[in-house]
Design a protein around this nucleic acid. Structure first.
Ligand SMILES: [Mn+2]
Ligand SMILES: [Mn+2]
Ligand SMILES: [Mn+2]
Ligand SMILES: [Mn+2]
Lengths: 228, 228
DNA sequence: TAAAAAAGTTAGTTATGACTAACAAATCTA
DNA sequence: TAGATTTGTTAGTCATAACTAACTTTTTTA
């Protein structure tokens, strides 16, 4: 059993850095995460991340050798997971109870996730009857910080003829999410890869009664489960 | 019609200072509010408030002469009112939907009030069907910033024999609020002033089937409407 | 009305978290 | 493997928002 009073007394920035490292570590599936990569992800300078990493190392949330790659301690991971839980519960609340669309929730959740109150988030969870997926299809960790990760397969990794089901989407870009709903794609949509064009690797997909051509960049942000 | 994009681009601190000035101005009913008084209210040093006041004057939310008392511009007032609206809507939400007690909501609302999203607060308002009172009995300004103030009569200002109804309570102290509910007082309770003791000005009150003696300090935080 | 007290201001310090510029180490790549 | 490129580090600056200590102005009161 780990320290109970953790995740408190952290600043908004410290929390966001830990979450970012966690996301990069699970996102890039156990690939190494470096200082500059983190800086780019957070849209700050490498000097800023270097500085914050020092502080997080002193507080024992992060470890790394000089000039080495970043890793999270158990404490660091635990804080990141709880932040993700809060973020996703808030996104779910905004979508399901306050008439937000899925492209509107991320920015607000980015603020709400930093509200310090265990009771608040657990009551919100209970109020919504313990949802397990957020509006973008991502899992929501439970109150004990437990969560399940299904492997993230991008639409762009499929071959011609493959059929898949849309599981989740990257929630970071408003224009991307608007685009997804505009063409009629939604969570659970069944998608067939009709053609991968040699010229620019753009992908012609079919779903429902629609056919659309999307770029590789688009397909990189769509996560699927292969059906056949 | 005033500037629309106001109240944005303000820091949490700037917002809290404007709210505090507003509360002191209406609370102390048009009495003058000075720098040191503000410092004491916000529990920071007079140097800190002096500094912040300078910034708020530069941004035209506050005005005052050197060594003079503080006043809010229309813009300043408007920001304060919107912050109070957010604070009280959140308190109402926490009490009515998330099983918070009235002594638990203030601290969390103090954080939630700084979330930047007009849609969020207006949808929350609509979700709750536009409540007009918060859990402590205070009015909630509407989406246009309109609000009505009933004169604040403290229980401590009554005379022996007066009968009144509890309208609202000061929401700032957890121990006070717990105390109020513990002795069985609630919004709308009818209270009779049975005796004001000469020795220490403590007040013996009767309500429901109870009789309690409360201090002047207690009675200063209870606001009532005189019944007879 | 002069001294004392209170209220307000200023200067200088600290912590946080950004930044740029300059530099060092590690990794590619020819 | 040497040179170039990428990655990471350090030093120094800035803005915000707190602080203490010292000072000035205003108000009180004896
Ligand atoms: Mn999100
Ligand atoms: Mn955030
Ligand atoms: Mn409150
Ligand atoms: Mn606040």
């Amino acid at each position: 059993m780990t320290n109970k009073s953790n995740s408190n007394n952290l600043t908004k920035s410290e929390e966001d850095y830990l979450k970012a490292i966690f996301q990069l570590l699970i996102g890039d599936n156990s690939r190494k995460v470096g200082n500059n990569q983190l800086a780019e992800y957070l849209k700050v300078s490498p000097a800023s991340t270097n500085n914050m990493i020092k502080k997080l190392k002193a507080k024992q949330y992060v470890f790394s050798e000089k000039y080495g790659k970043l890793e999270l301690t158990e404490e660091g991971k635990s804080i990141a997971v709880r932040l993700i839980r809060k973020h996703r519960l808030w996104e779910t609340f905004l979508c399901n109870y306050l008439n937000f669309t899925w492209d509107e929730v991320h920015e607000v959740a980015e603020q709400l996730e930093h509200i310090k109150s265990n009771k608040l988030i657990d009551e919100l969870d209970s109020f919504m009857d313990f949802p397990t997926k957020d509006p973008h299809g991502e899992m929501i960790p439970n109150a004990n910080g437990e969560y399940s990760l299904l492997p993230k397969i991008t639409l762009s990794s499929l071959d011609e003829g493959d059929v898949c089901q849309l599981i989740s989407v990257n929630d970071g870009s408003v224009t991307f999410l608007k685009y997804v709903s505009e063409i009629g794609l939604a969570l659970s949509s069944e998608i067939k890869v009709l053609e991968i064009r040699d010229f620019d690797k753009s992908i012609k997909i079919g779903f429902n009664t629609s056919v659309e051509t999307v770029t590789r960049k688009f397909a990189d942000n769509v996560f699927v489960k292969i059906v056949s």
